[in-house]
């Protein structure tokens, strides 16, 4: 996703304006002049100022005929696009379901899926996924006492 600087600047300017409007709605700190709104206002103004500068810079260096928006090369390769979306989706699944399903099954599934998808053979993928999951579970949950979600295996672990 490649955006022309003018378009990026415009988007960031919109963000700055939204932030400014939001800041104006924040309540004052009782009995004090500077409250929750002071700093967001400064940030919004700074973001706005540099957005305008970016638009201006983009305008000066514009090349005739260059599109405002273009997809990067890798997006056109369906395999790469698939890999990209799959990675995002798998982390998303982890966020949503790790409490219920648990670290071990999800880690096995995520690693296996990504290995196979990137061309590792099934057997090797399964073996490495199992080894890596065991190592992480041992190092983080047992040694470092990170409460990795137990999920389905709650009664066994």
């Amino acid at each position: 996703m490649r955006l022309d600087d003018r378009l990026t600047g415009a988007l960031l300017l919109a963000l700055a304006i939204a932030l400014l409007v939001y800041a104006m709605g924040l309540p004052p700190m009782p009995g004090q002049r500077y409250g929750a709104a002071a700093f967001p206002t400064v940030v919004a103004l700074g973001l706005g100022l540099f957005s305008v500068l970016l638009i201006w810079q983009g305008w000066r260096t514009r090349r005739p005929g260059a599109p405002l928006f273009a997809w990067a090369g890798w997006v056109k390769d369906s395999r790469n696009l698939g890999n990209f979306l799959l990675s995002l989706a798998l982390v998303g699944v982890y966020v949503a379901a790790s409490d219920k399903i648990g670290f071990i099954p999800l880690s096995l599934a995520i690693l296996f899926a990504l290995f196979v998808r990137q061309g590792v053979t099934w057997g090797r993928a399964a073996a490495i996924a199992a080894l890596a999951t065991a190592a992480i579970q041992y190092a983080f949950a047992s040694l470092l006492r990170v409460p990795l979600p137990r999920g389905l295996l709650d009664s066994i672990l």
């Binding site: 890596a132 190592a135 190092a139 040694l143 470092l144």
Partner: peptide
Amino acid sequence: KRRDVIKSGAAAATVAG
């Protein structure tokens, strides 16, 4: 690498022990 993970893991285990 995994091997080092286990190696230093074992060290930490000894400390924890």
